[in-house]
Nucleic acid binder design. Structure first.
Length: 598
RNA sequence: UGCCCGAUGGUGUAAUGGUAGCACAAACGAUUCUGACUCGUUUUGUCUAGGUUCGAGUCCUAGUCGGGCAGCCA
């Protein structure tokens, strides 16, 4: 089943994930029910994608990938008043980023501007929205709005079969007639209109003869059904509004329930996977498809529980509020759980995919500990991040036995996780900076770092001893005067001398200054979404900006590079605010710190 | 108070009638030129009550708790 390469020399591939939906797909494959497994990721272009969506993307593309199938990116754009091209662009970018190097080959797109092709299947008319051939130059995502003509035809067919009618009830009346969960609804007085009259009225709805809300097209099912969604649900509403993708061709727009199942059908979707709030819609999904007696196999809907992560929020409304009220700086603020925020923060797409694999797929809506996500991020970054030396809060150290002007080049390992690690050189000079946290005049118990009269190793360089602490008038430490034992350098006679602590450092004059943004969780409580005013729990310390000193090699860092600043965490260039000669780094995540925790 | 869905350590999950396992987290230890990584050890679990069965986390019944559904949103 797995398409993972089975290279005998390579590390064993991760086992293909397994869950109840993949089990169903596997059974369908075993039974040869479909020529190809086709899923879809169907966002509405009315907001930015977040980590919660990533779970769905990974599920849908993962299933396609594991079965040599396809996953269509489709915009579910049936409500022009809420949607915008800004979002179709950001969503497309985010999806491509998330699946890059993993499932690009499964991404279903269509020829730009393409609409469903008419075909005949078993002697019956049919339409099919085909993916773009590999040779196609100009491609774009699928759009439900590209199916408006077909959808209209299906609506007409439903009317002709006596399964739909035009209703003149106002929105308020419709609501009143619907009843309540424990009270049956009442039939609309327009429910018994003739097919001919319905056809005429529906055509006139399309022609724009009626104002918004004056009439609607409804399915004729059962106003007494215990399932609200079977109480003659609306199929079409009148909206005299232009559409961001379809233009001004339409003034009637299909509703989700009508458009979604048929869009799935048109694209040949085999498994339509959505979140559990749509579970009660499934009977309607099947009802519409079955009444139309379509010539090809019907898609089936399956539901899973959406992702929640502690210390953050995924609600579109609340995310929007954070942006609008300027608690964060835009949708791609690195503190936000949006995919654009995560990307900007330096989180690799692979870490998000790993999280999705780690949390699994069930019907139980849970709250995943953010620690699991952090673990996935660290684990991915540990393998691919180049180690560098950087000091966030510098304290000057003068190595009194090193002549000014002398530079000692030290070999530093780029990534000890590599099978054959490479090295670079970092310059040691008379004046260096160390992290202010790495010196304590009055050290707590078991403090491994520098203290008066104590010794510590400067990583990749040598052991130094603190001889003198220089302070200013206020008592703040301004300088540490130390002696360096150059015989403890790698290859030196005392190279193997052990000291308890090893700290990071940079040369004072041979280092570069940079703005570094330190992020912490956005909220101070595990479930901010559970409270009424979630903004009360915003973490005031979620962003701290420092001017750090970086080793010289970091001056040429590229946006796509990932770094571990040793002993501090993982960092990446901010792709937006960095400029040549003026690097801005974002801290993606700290290293695990079992010492600080105590 | 209608219908649908769900419930396994602190968290997320596996076990498809046959030894409750994994990951994260936590604790302790080893190792360490990153208090990271790695390695070892340990703590903690089948919502409740009945029933079926040689045997139940799994099947049945009832209950409890949680989620979803009454947009011309998706």
């Amino acid at each position: 089943m797995s398409v993972e390469p089975t290279d005998p020399g390579a590390a064993p591939a991760a086992p293909a994930p397994s869950d109840f939906i993949r089990d169903i797909v596997a059974q369908d494959v075993a039974a040869r029910r479909h020529a190809e497994i086709i899923t879809r990721f169907p966002p509405e272009p009315n907001g930015y994608l977040h980590i919660g969506h990533a779970k769905s993307i990974c599920l849908n593309f993962g299933i396609a990938r594991e079965n040599n199938g396809r996953c269509n990116l489709r915009f579910d754009d049936t409500n022009p008043v809420k949607e915008d091209v800004e979002y179709v662009e950001s969503i497309t970018t985010d999806v491509r980023w998330l699946i890059a190097g993993w499932a690009d080959h499964c991404l279903g797109l269509k020829v730009k501007g393409g609409t469903p092709a008419q075909q005949t299947v078993n002697g019956r008319a049919d339409a099919y929205a085909a993916p773009a051939p590999a040779s196609a130059r100009d491609t774009e995502a699928f759009f439900a709005s590209d199916y408006f003509e077909e959808l209209y035809g299906y609506a007409v067919a439903l009317i002709q079969r006596g399964h739909a009618y035009v209703c003149d009830l106002t929105p308020e009346e419709t609501e009143a007639y619907r009843g309540a969960p424990d009270k049956p609804g009442r039939d609309s007085p327009y429910r018994t209109r003739s097919v001919a009259e319905n056809l005429d009225l529906f055509a006139r709805m399309r022609a724009g003869e009626f104002p918004n809300g004056a009439r609607s097209l409804r399915a004729k099912i059962d106003m007494a059904s215990p399932n609200i969604w079977l109480r003659d649900p609306l199929l079409y509403r009148i909206r005299h509004t232009a559409h961001h993708h379809a233009g001004d061709k339409w003034c009637i727009y299909p509703l989700y329930d009508f458009a979604h199942c048929l869009s799935d059908y048109l694209e040949g979707i085999t498994h339509s996977i959505c979140t559990i709030e749509f579970e009660v819609h499934r009977p309607l999904y099947d009802w519409i498809l079955q009444r139309l007696e379509l010539p090809r196999a019907l898609p089936r809907q399956y539901e899973f529980a959406k992702l929640n992560i502690s210390y953050t929020i995924f609600s579109k409304r609340r995310l929007l509020q954070l942006v609008n009220e300027r608690h964060v700086n835009g949708w791609d603020d690195p503190r936000l759980p949006t995919l654009s925020g995560a990307r900007r923060r330096g989180i690799p797409a692979s870490a998000i995919r790993r999280l999705a694999a780690l949390v699994g797929v069930t019907k139980f809506e849970s709250v995943t500990d953010v620690a699991l996500f952090e673990h996935a991020i660290r684990d991915e970054l540990n393998a691919l991040a180049a180690r560098r030396l950087a000091v966030l809060r510098p304290v000057k150290v003068v190595l009194t036995n090193l002549p000014a002007g002398e530079t000692v080049l030290c070999d530093a390992t780029n990534n000890p996780q590599d099978e054959n690690p490479t090295t670079r050189q970092v310059p040691l000079t008379r004046e260096v900076y160390i992290e202010s946290e790495d010196f304590a005049e009055v050290p707590p118990p078991k403090y491994f770092r520098l203290k008066p009269g104590g010794e510590v190793r400067l990583k990749y360089a040598c052991i130094i001893k603190c001889d003198e602490v220089v302070k200013d008038a206020t008592g703040a430490v301004t300088e540490l005067r130390c002696t360096a034992d150059l015989t403890t350098r790698a290859g030196g006679t005392n190279a193997d001398r052990k000291v308890k602590g090893t700290i990071h450092w940079v040369s004072a004059n041979l280092s570069v200054a940079a703005e570094v943004r330190l992020y912490d969780r956005l909220f101070t409580v595990a479930e901010p979404g559970a409270t009424d005013d979630f903004t009360r729990h915003l973490n005031p310390g979620s962003l701290e900006v420092v001017t750090a000193r970086l080793e010289p090699s970091l001056a040429t860092a590229r946006v796509e590079d990932r770094f571990q600043f040793e002993r501090l965490g993982y960092f990446a260039l901010d792709p937006k605010d960095s400029a040549p000669g003026r690097p801005v780094f974002n801290r993606t995540i700290t290293l695990k710190d079992t010492w600080a925790k105590k």
